[in-house]
């Protein structure tokens, strides 16, 4: 439980690991777009792969792959999952 509450941004998530959305610091249309795709506080999200040059990154959310640029992902705050929490 020690590291469970550390807040990071989604863009810092290492490839292959999962985390939980805490909040979206984005605004405007992009914020709504991302919310509508089911990236809402509490959602579990896993980073799956990066583009050939390191950006964008594709994330697995609710069974679908969604690619986001690192600038945008850095505005999404997440918390690491503690051991034993359910994975996506």
């Amino acid at each position: 439980m020690k590291n469970a509450e550390r807040i990071n941004s989604l863009s810092d998530l290492s490839l292959g690991s999962a985390c939980q959305i805490v909040s979206l610091e984005l605004s405007g249309l992009l914020r709504r777009r991302i919310l509508d795709l089911g990236i809402v506080p509490g959602t579990l999200i896993r980073s799956i792969r990066r583009g050939p040059s390191g950006d964008p990154t594709a994330y697995l959310v609710r069974g679908t792959l969604i690619a986001l640029r690192s600038e945008d992902a850095s505005q999404i705050l997440v918390r690491k999952l503690s051991n034993g929490e359910e994975c996506v």
Binding site: V61, R62, G63, T64
Partner: peptide, 9 residues
């Protein structure tokens, strides 16, 4: 059917 959760939205 392959992404039920998001589609149920």
């Amino acid at each position: 059917a392959t992404s039920l959760e998001r589609n149920l939205n």
